[in-house]
């Protein structure tokens, strides 16, 4: 009755609210944790100590190099047709402006196609992208590529409508990628409200001028660590189920949702199994990734270091789309493995979270899944996730202890049962 014991302990028993309370203490103490920052170093030290205090096995830090981008002071002001402050967040990896800033006329477009069709107008201007929010995966292209696409047509900077499904004048940051051979221009996100304002002004033929100041600096890569702890398997200790979330965050808000919740329900999974005196046949390994927000930097180095043992990797699990009320699990693997995972999910009937969906997702586990290892990701009611994502709104206030209890129960039952089955998942 292991599954029922886990559910009872996590949702109704003495461990209820523990992952929430641990997360609150952590983010209230450390704050946000951007790659290369002192805060991230403190966070890793904190977790290294906390996991040891929790009597987990093989607590260790695995060294990696991560980007170190620093935002600096930044501001934007619409100068014409009237003065208005624009709330901005520079994008990770962006170059800064000259100290005096950049003052230029604006061209507003709603798509890359429109930019191409109006390329003659864009030279020497600031490109404002007012792309509609379709989905995160589709719309985030403007944040990732907007600067380089604007630079190709001679723009001096780009301001991109935040990739947000709801806005209260809140800018959302994120990583952006410069293309090789294309000039690097400053790039930041503006609010949905200001993007729409400038789009309306522009549609009326009104000339818009914006002053942009960004003090961003790219430092040399910094030392960082993936944080690891285990419950060592009793029968096949070399075979591993990974449960994971990422410890780094953006430099705004608290990183409580992205991905504090995922990291702390993953820790909770090991704590619950330990509390119940369970010892699965295989090793359950907690990995708290570093440098995820810059493109899975810590996890890619982890993969390169450990892929020699890929045949022993049973299942890789990552929670990185929030820890709202869970609705099931996403899974990627062969049909034979899916049948088994469907059976495992039935064990969660007592809390009515039994659905198995397709297409596990998670930057940090993607390297393993692409190489054929079965992968699973927590699916929750993430309808509000992109309200807060990468913004000052990503705070503990988003989190809910009851939801986290349920997330931890789902996460732990799946990790434990798969780790304890007599055979590894087919692959």
């Amino acid at each position: 009755d292991a599954a029922k014991s886990i559910i009872d302990l996590a949702v109704y028993g003495s461990a209820q609210n523990r992952s929430y309370e641990r997360l609150a203490l952590f983010v209230d103490t450390i704050g946000n944790r951007v790659s290369g920052s002192d805060n991230l170093k403190k966070a890793i030290k904190y977790m290294y100590s906390a996991l040891q205090d929790d009597k987990l096995q093989n607590v260790s830090l695995e060294s990696v190099k991560v980007p170190h981008w620093e935002r600096g002071k930044e501001s934007a002001m619409m100068l014409q047709p009237r003065q208005k402050n624009l709330a901005i967040l520079g994008l990770g990896g962006s170059v800064g402006t000259p100290p005096e800033g950049i003052s230029a006329e604006v061209i507003v477009v709603s798509s890359f196609a429109e930019l191409q069709s109006r390329e003659q107008e864009a030279k020497g201007k600031i490109v404002v992208y007012n792309q509609p929010y379709v989905s995160y995966g589709e719309t985030v292209q403007y944040r990732s590529r907007g600067a380089s696409e604007a630079a190709k047509v001679g723009a001096v900077a780009s301001l991109i409508r935040s990739v947000a499904s709801l806005s209260i004048n809140s800018p959302h940051t994120g990583w952006q990628d410069y293309q090789n051979g294309v000039p690097k221009i400053p790039t930041a996100c503006i609010t949905v409200e200001d993007a729409e304002l400038m789009a309306r002004l522009s549609s009326r033929g009104v000339k818009i001028v914006v002053q942009l100041n960004m003090g961003a600096v790219q430092h040399p890569d910094a030392d960082s660590f993936n944080t690891v702890a285990e419950i060592v398997g009793s029968k096949y200790p070399e075979q591993v189920v990974i449960v994971s979330g990422h410890l780094d965050s953006w430099d705004v808000g608290q990183g409580a949702m992205d991905d504090g919740g995922g990291a702390f329900i993953s820790w909770e999974a090991l704590s619950l199994i330990r509390d119940l005196g369970l010892r699965p046949k295989r090793t359950i390994r907690l990995v708290l990734w570093t440098g995820e927000e810059e493109g899975g930097v810590g996890s890619s180095q982890y993969y390169e270091r450990h892929k020699v043992n890929i045949r022993n990797m049973d299942l890789v699990m990552e929670s990185d789309i929030g820890t709202f009320m869970p609705v099931g699990m996403q899974f990627s693997g062969k049909p034979e493995a899916r049948v088994i995972m469907s059976e495992v999910m039935k064990l969660l009937a007592p809390i009515n979270i039994t659905k198995l969906y397709d297409n596990a997702e998670g930057t940090d586990i993607s390297f393993w899944m692409q190489a054929g290892v079965p992968g699973a990701s927590l699916l929750d009611d993430a309808s509000r996730y992109f309200w807060f994502h990468h913004s000052e709104g990503d705070t503990m206030t988003v989190q809910n202890p009851i939801w986290m209890n349920h997330c931890a129960a789902v996460w732990t039952v799946v990790a434990y049962v798969v780790a304890d089955l007599e055979e590894m998942l087919p692959r």
Partner: peptide, 23 residues
């Protein structure tokens, strides 16, 4: 062999029973 899943029906039943044992 289960034609849909490519796994031995006997093996599948055995694994289902094994998983059910965790209830």
């Amino acid at each position: 062999t289960d034609s849909q899943h490519g796994v031995s029906s006997r093996k599948l039943e055995r694994i289902k029973e094994e998983v059910a044992g965790y209830k």
